[in-house]
């Protein structure tokens, strides 16, 4: 603890990130450039989220980290340990106990509340990047609100597959102005972006961008009148807790094609099992 400044980053870096966060909250969905630092973990392991978490954490916080919904996977365990060591903050796996939640690729199933902060790890913050590789052009497109290309992409999905085949990192429009990449969350989670009581912050370390959604902010998934947006999930109940309303992972369990579907949100599943709910695969 004494070997590091509180939450690892130096104070001037935290001020720079904090200024970017305030501008990001003032312009919901707009990507604010920031001077991303080298972190003691590789790019792609959540360096953007880690820097945002370091800038917002206080010693009183209770911190939770999830990776694809799970508290126990490598990325989640190592980032949780990083802040236990460098910030000395309390940690938890319970969604309702956490004041700051850093996440990779999921929004917790349990509803968030006022006072909580959800920090997303973002690999590619620019929703138009795979359609237009030049930053100078995508910046101009955001400036002019020129998002026709994104609708063409969704239309081509329909022409090719009969439906919008984009299933994660599904583009959204924020407060009727900026098209935003919600990070690679499944589109099942998209409705939870809108009107959340919690503050949602997005950090992309390698791409050096921060963006944000204030609470009670309107976030609309792009679609067409005749092909409305549909959040989707595997059509099964959870094998362990029996939940029918949660996002599921498919797990291969043997060499004979056996499989089971389980909640991707481990805290949600554990909480339900502790309350006595059982699925068909529960031991």
């Amino acid at each position: 603890m004494t070997d590091y400044n509180f939450a690892y980053l130096d104070e001037q870096t935290k001020r720079m990130i904090r200024r970017a966060l305030l501008k990001a909250l003032a312009i919901p969905g707009y990507q604010v450039p920031f001077a991303s630092r080298e972190m003691p973990m590789p790019y792609g392991w959540g360096t953007g989220g880690v820097q945002v978490s370091a800038a917002v954490l206080t010693p009183e916080d209770r911190f939770k980290v999830i990776d694809q919904g799970a508290d126990g996977t490598t990325n989640a365990v190592s980032i949780r340990a990083f802040f236990e060591r460098t910030a000395g903050v309390a940690t938890t796996t319970a969604t309702h106990e956490a004041s700051v939640i850093q996440t990779r690729h999921r929004i917790p199933e349990a509803p968030l509340r006022e006072g909580q902060i959800l920090v997303y790890q973002v690999p590619i913050p620019e929703p138009l990047r795979f359609l237009e590789p030049r930053e100078s052009e995508t910046r101009k497109m955001h400036e002019l609100e020129e998002y026709g290309l994104m609708h063409v992409k969704l239309y081509e999905d329909i022409a090719r597959h009969g439906h919008i085949a984009t299933s994660y990192a599904y583009p959204v429009k924020v407060e009727g102005r900026y098209v935003m990449d919600p990070s690679p969350i499944p589109k099942f989670d998209n409705p939870k972006l809108s009107n959340s009581p919690a503050i949602q912050l997005f950090g992309a370390g390698r791409e050096q961008r921060i963006y944000a959604l204030p609470p009670y902010c309107e976030v609309v998934s792009l679609d067409f009148e005749d092909h409305p947006f549909e959040p989707s999930k595997a059509d099964h109940p959870c094998g362990l807790c029996g939940a029918t309303d949660s996002y599921l992972d498919e797990v291969i369990v043997d060499d004979a094609g056996g499989r089971m579907f389980v909640c991707s949100d481990t805290d949600y599943c554990d909480t339900r099992q502790a309350a006595g709910y059982r699925g068909k695969d529960a031991a």
Binding site: K14, L22, A26, A55, I199
Partner: peptide
């Protein structure tokens, strides 16, 4: 500074 920033961020949000 972290505590003060959180208050300011809540105010802005």
């Amino acid at each position: 500074a972290a505590q003060a920033f959180r208050r300011i961020m809540e105010a802005m949000a």
